[in-house]
């Protein structure tokens, strides 16, 4: 187990370095950050001095090494556009993103798994057809459009729910949460719904396919022949064997949600990391962009590690191979 973790961590370092390098070389094509950092009356000489001061004239490898040596100490520099340390910005924004993504992932699982099982067991029923076809809406409509539609219906026409922001938040230690106030909870509804719809389709279809696969296997047939009750068969034996790939995919999916919640975040002006990143692109705010990409890479790496460990726990066959 320890060997597995160490092995994975070594991989992670390589991945992180690669991401940092790619992020850095990409940023060089984003344009000139200086024109967003000074006013129009700032002289050419002052602009050039600022460029020099920020080290933007150094060759890319030099900039990269300097960035890395600061980054390992947790210093990502100052945001060009907001003039606050980047690490501080991310510490402020991370709770918003994590709350949104984790809650929507939970909802997607709570709704998706039962629906998936239902559609696998009652393969041709009317409800199955209805669920499958309506879930297609989730994948075929872009998140952006779903968000705007929800805002239009529930925010503008019905005026039931707030159209943007997080509402009132409560600080617990360094963590800001919107779960403890009514305006915070109300603000969560639309963005969570948008993100949930985005994942739901995948989970339903995945659970259904896996479940149908498992139900066809010999051990289920034997179990049925032995007279095990249908409920126990479906929900204990079959479901357990279905969950393996589901966990892998949902885990990776969580990384996706955290990374791609940026569309949902910008539609709902949700003050999370994704929104910060979108704003940073507009301003060619290099320190924020690079830090964001690094953080997202780190999250992916960590989630992968956790998924691997979960496999290890769930699948007894891996124990013996791990011991070899």
């Amino acid at each position: 187990m320890l060997k597995l973790i160490l092995n994975r961590l070594a991989h992670s370092v390589v991945v992180m370095l690669a991401v940092a390098l790619i992020a850095f070389s990409m940023v060089a094509f984003l344009g000139d950050p200086i024109s967003n950092m000074v006013g129009q009356d700032t002289t050419v000489a002052e602009r050039a001095a600022l460029r020099e001061n920020l080290g933007l004239n150094d060759p890319l490898p030099v900039q990269f090494v300097r960035f890395l040596s600061h980054a390992v100490q947790g210093d990502f520099g100052l945001s060009y556009s907001l003039r606050v340390p980047v690490s501080e910005l991310f510490a402020e924004r991370m709770p918003a993103t994590l709350e949104l993504s984790i809650i929507s992932a939970i909802f997607a699982l709570l709704i998706g798994i039962p629906l998936g099982i239902h559609t696998a067991i009652n393969r041709d029923s009317f409800t199955t057809q209805a669920i499958l076809s309506s879930s297609l809406v989730g994948v075929s409509l872009p998140t952006f459009l779903i968000g705007i539609l929800l805002i239009l219906i529930f925010g503008v026409m019905l005026r039931w729910l707030p159209t943007f922001g997080r509402g009132d938040v409560v600080m617990i230690g360094g963590w800001s949460t919107g779960l403890l106030t009514s305006s915070g909870l109300r603000s969560l509804v639309l963005p969570v719904a948008t993100l949930t719809i985005f994942q739901l389709t995948l989970i339903i279809r995945l659970v259904r396919a896996e479940m149908m696969e498992v139900l066809r296997t010999d051990f289920i047939k034997f179990a049925r022949a032995r007279g095990i009750r249908r409920k126990a068969l479906n929900y204990r034996h079959a479901l357990k064997n279905t969950m393996m790939p589901v966990i892998t995919v949902v885990g990776l999916q969580l990384g996706n949600i955290i990374a791609f919640s940026l569309i949902t975040e910008s539609v709902f002006q949700w003050p999370g990391m994704g929104l910060l990143f979108v704003q940073a692109i507009g301003n060619a705010d290099i320190p924020v962009m690079v830090a964001y990409l690094m953080i997202i890479a780190l999250i992916f790496v960590l989630i992968n590690l956790i998924v691997d460990l979960l496999h290890f726990v769930l699948d007894p066959r891996l124990h013996s191979s791990g011991a070899n």
């Binding site: 984003l30 344009g31 024109s35 967003n36 602009r47 050039a48 692109i281 507009g282 301003n283 060619a284």
Partner: peptide, 15 residues
């Protein structure tokens, strides 16, 4: 047509 940071970066004196 391009985003403002690229556009101004190219267009102004430093570009």
């Amino acid at each position: 047509a391009e985003t403002k940071s690229r556009y101004f970066g190219r267009l102004f004196a430093q570009g």
